[in-house]
Every structure is written in structure tokens, then in C-alpha cells.
């Protein structure tokens, strides 16, 4: 029997992108698509939100996929199978509203393609026509391609440098689809805030219902601190317990983008200190 919070498996999907299965039966038991967990790597660690990418109720594990961008995600990346995390809480947030809409475009950018996977799967399971658009900076950073293909009726790929699929951003692929006459009933998106902003400019222009899964900075994850607040339709909303999904056409993206940069100075300082102690963890070549 694994111990609670034990890392069962770890896989490197792309440079600095890792997939990790963690034993937390109470979360696996109630997890639904669109929800997330808060992980603390060690006793001095930060409360780090990560999306639930997959789970197994019988075996009691949940799957996380993360990009190593700073100290918390690097600490997490250094955890080996057999070791335990300090804390995992969840599932948090409201599950994605899944029903048969008709044609649904699912957009995932960067590491968040993994977060789009359970959503595309859920939309597919209730017989939507699922068109997935996934994008990465470069071909070697593109993850979950085969998994996304397996749950989509159509799969479109973009890379910023053109090394795979269409050269450009996911929003460019969305425009191309719409120009060809596609009339989706829903566009669902997850990824870096600037990507979601670009996609929502398109959906706004074409008057398409659009949902975005937001990723603001969080602390508590339970409606107590307000760190995750965003402005949607002019109102303050808490992403952790009222979200994480909101009407993409109503989100104040510029404010979210500013708020994500709030600790840039401190993050850089911490990262430098961390790297001087531990180096890059040795798997950059992967």
C-alpha cells in the first residue's frame, strides 16, 4: 500500500515538463474534469495549484502535469517515485459543465494541453463533435498529442516557430477554422493568459460562447484570501471557489496578466538562489 501523498510514477514529457502520479485516494475518489489540487512540495513550500489531468478511483492516484518555471514546480520535479509530497488538497474548484452542445472547440496551449485533455475527453464522452487545437512554442515542447487525438474528432496543431503543424498561435488556428465556415457551439480554452486573451478576442468578435479556465496566483484555494480574484463582467470573482472557469468574453485579461507578474522580482531572486544550490536537476536534455 502506498503512503498518502506518495509519488508513484514520474515521467519527463518534454524539456522541463513532467507528469507525476500521486497517491491521494480521497481526491481520486471525487475528482471531476476541470478541478484542480493545491500541492505543497515540502514543509517550506508554497501552496501551488495544479490541474487534475487524470485519476484512478480504484488505485487512488491522481495525475499532474507541470512545467518547471520556478522554485515550487522545480522542487516538485525533483521528487522521485517512493518519496512523498508535503500536502495535496482537493479537488478544488467547480467541475466543468459538460453537456451535449454540438460542436465544441477545445484549445490548449503549452503545458496546459494536459489540462485540456480531461475536458476534451468529457465533451467527447457525451457525443459532442470535438475539435481540438493544441499549440506549443516548438515541436519538442508539444505534449499529449496522441492522447488529445484519441478524444478528438479533429486535431489541429500550431507551433510558434512552425516546426510542427501550422506556424502561429492557437488563436490563429481558431481564426482559420472560423474563416472556413465552422460554427462552434462552444469554445473552451486553457493556457497562458496572453493566449487566452488572444483567443477570446476572436470569440468575442465572432460572438461565440467561450469558457476559459483561469490560472491566477492562489494561496488558500478555498475562498478565504482573495489572492485569486479576477474581474469578470466588471465584478470581482474568486477563481478558486467560483471558478476556475468563467465566460472568456467577459474576463478582464489585462488585469489578470498584471496580477500574474506581481511577484516577478521575488520569484527571480528565489529561483537564482535555488539554482545556485541545486542546479537544473539534470534533465534539460530530455
Amino acid at each position: 500500500m502506498p503512503r498518502i501523498y506518495e509519488v508513484l510514477r514520474k515521467k519527463i514529457l518534454a524539456p522541463r515538463i513532467k507528469e507525476m502520479d500521486v497517491y491521494v485516494p480521497q481526491i481520486a475518489k471525487s475528482a471531476k474534469p476541470g478541478q484542480f489540487v493545491i500541492v505543497i512540495p515540502d514543509e517550506k513550500g508554497e501552496r501551488t495549484p495544479l490541474t487534475l489531468v487524470d485519476w484512478n478511483r480504484d488505485e487512488g492516484w491522481v495525475r499532474l502535469v507541470f512545467l518547471e518555471v520556478g522554485v515550487s514546480t522545480m522542487k516538485l520535479g525533483m521528487k522521485e517515485p517512493g518519496s512523498t509530497l508535503y500536502y495535496v488538497a482537493g479537488p478544488l474548484g467547480n467541475p466543468t459543465h459538460v453537456e451535449k452542445f454540438g460542436t465544441v472547440v477545445v484549445i490548449g496551449g503549452g503545458v496546459a494541453i494536459a489540462a485540456a485533455y480531461p475536458i476534451a475527453r468529457a465533451f467527447k464522452e457525451v457525443s459532442n463533435h470535438v475539435i481540438s487545437v493544441i499549440g506549443a512554442r516548438s515541436a519538442n515542447l508539444l505534449i499529449y498529442e496522441e492522447l488529445m487525438r484519441s478524444v478528438s474528432d479533429e486535431l489541429h496543431i500550431t507551433t510558434d516557430d512552425g516546426s510542427k503543424g501550422m506556424k502561429g498561435f492557437t488563436s490563429d488556428a481558431l481564426v482559420a477554422l472560423l474563416n472556413k465556415g465552422l460554427k462552434p457551439n462552444l469554445v473552451w480554452m486553457v493556457g497562458p493568459a496572453p493566449m487566452m486573451k488572444a483567443c477570446s478576442e476572436v470569440t468575442k468578435k465572432y460572438r461565440i460562447k467561450a469558457i476559459a479556465s483561469l490560472n491566477p496566483i492562489m494561496v488558500c484555494g478555498m475562498g478565504m484570501c482573495g489572492a485569486c480574484r479576477v474581474k469578470v463582467g466588471g465584478k470581482i470573482r474568486f477563481t478558486c471557489y467560483e471558478g476556475p472557469e468563467f465566460d472568456a468574453n467577459e474576463v478582464d485579461w489585462d488585469e489578470l496578466i498584471f496580477r500574474l507578474k506581481m511577484y516577478q522580482k521575488e520569484e527571480l531572486e528565489a529561483l537564482k538562489l535555488f539554482l545556485s544550490k541545486y542546479g537544473l536537476g539534470g534533465d534539460t536534455h530530455a
Binding site: 480521497q26 471525487s30 478541478q35 500536502y87 495535496v88 488538497a89 482537493g90 479537488p91 484555494g221
Partner: peptide, 10 residues
């Protein structure tokens, strides 16, 4: 039991 949000986890 820590990390249990009643209403969500259970």
C-alpha cells in the same frame, strides 16, 4: 485530517 475541503473532497 488535513487537506480536506468539505463540500469538495467530501
Amino acid at each position: 485530517e488535513i487537506g480536506v475541503s468539505v463540500g469538495r473532497t467530501i
